[in-house]
Design a protein around this nucleic acid. Structure first.
Lengths: 117, 117
DNA sequence: CAGATCGTGTAGTAGTTACTACACAGTACT
DNA sequence: AGTACTGTGTAGTAACTACTACACGATCTG
């Protein structure tokens, strides 16, 4: 629906309406990039920044880092590591769950977190 | 335990003992790289090749692509796409399952594939 | 109306990825 | 002895990643 850039722009501008410290310049400074670069990223002139900067940006915007990373075409490196430690197991699980509806997956999450099994 | 390179070398040489078409040169040609490059990869002088070449290599060696990719520090792009389509859901699931033993995860896989739920 | 802050255009760059191309010496076959 | 195949060393490269640095005109603020 939205590209990474335009989504960030819309979210940031919404926050900037109430809070003037959410300008391109100030947000850029806080996440550790040059203003010109963030400007280009938001207009999809430059590709999304690195994982670390995206996570920092998510924090600034009050957004889910995994969602923003996904929009940037990335998967969090800690999730990748989980898979890499038991690749066959998680590969089979994920391909199995690919076709399952959200509620089925949520059901598993709850099952595991509740510890009832 | 083994690096990507040395693991490939050992597997290939084991196959080469019976089947002379498993030389560096011939395997390299079949997976679509220069022999010198495969030689370097197997000695960990060059980093692992691209995902596509690793998958082709796995086929040559009769190995699980996901395992070989993991050894190369990668995660299959189709798995990444599964996650990127529902990032929050799968992020929570994977972080939840991180600490679970293999048999618990296998139990879920079987539950889903059997369709009993 | 001066100074600060705003977003953005242009140009450049260091590091990584994913290789190729060629050459050379050693070994195996006939 | 000649041909063919083996592995490997050196050198080079195109494309991508992830940015920085500076400059400019517009706008907003005291």
């Amino acid at each position: 629906m939205y590209s990474f850039g335009s989504y960030v722009r819309i979210r940031r501008e919404a926050l900037n309406a109430d809070d003037k410290s959410m300008s391109v310049r100030q947000v850029a400074q806080r996440i550790g990039v040059e203003p010109a670069f963030l400007s280009k990223v938001e207009r999809d002139v430059a590709p999304p920044p690195s994982e670390a900067k995206i996570v920092a940006l998510a924090k600034e915007l009050g957004e889910d880092p995994d969602l923003l990373l996904a929009m940037a075409g990335k998967v969090s490196s800690d999730l990748q590591e989980i898979i890499r430690k038991r690749p066959q197991l998680f590969a089979e699980l994920l391909r199995q769950l690919k076709g399952q509806p959200d509620h089925a997956i949520l059901y598993i999450v709850r099952q595991v977190s509740d510890g009832n099994w």
